[in-house]
């Protein structure tokens, strides 16, 4: 139920973001979603792709420092209070969110939340127990594709 996310270390200079994205685009790998966290000096590019193993290899061969981590995707209704309801569940269970990002879908009235948890397995348990829907890779592909 966990998704594989790739994180890349990038220096925060013009043009640094384009190169890795072009590298996987050249191999026909489509990005499902990405987020960028940055400081003045460096940034961390986090992305989710279906062919993550291949992408990881491409990045490594290209000389980037890349890390694979497991994240959890949850879909909620894209309307006021949608995210809050999910967060309320996590808060009640005292689950620590290390970071998160979100995007909404064009077709459905759904929004996808991507979470990085300290303990993803327990988080999934809690989410399921509380009737939330944990999205798997294939499903995400369908949503996005």
């Amino acid at each position: 139920m966990k998704l594989q996310q790739l994180s890349l270390f990038l220096e925060n200079r013009p043009g640094q973001l384009g190169a890795p994205l072009e590298a996987i685009a050249a191999e026909g790998i489509n990005i499902l979603t990405l987020s960028l966290a940055d400081t003045a000096q460096f940034g961390i590019l986090r992305l989710i792709v279906r062919e993550w193993e291949q992408a990881k290899q491409i990045f490594e061969q290209g000389g980037w420092v890349v890390k694979q981590t497991e994240v959890v995707a949850v879909d909620v209704l894209d309307r006021p209070g949608g995210l809050a309801s999910a967060l309320a569940v996590l808060e009640a269970a005292e689950l620590n969110i290390e970071y998160m990002y979100a995007f909404s879908l064009r077709r459905d009235d759904k929004a996808i939340l991507i979470f990085r948890f300290e303990d993803p397995d327990r988080a999934i348990e809690v989410l399921l127990e509380n009737g939330l829907h944990v999205v798997e890779t294939e499903e995400l592909m369908r949503h996005v594709g």
Binding site: S7, A37, T39, I44, V65, V66, K67, T69, Y99
Partner: peptide, 8 residues
């Protein structure tokens, strides 16, 4: 890779 983390 040994010192990289996806966490800021």
């Amino acid at each position: 890779p040994e010192i990289f983390s996806d966490r800021m």
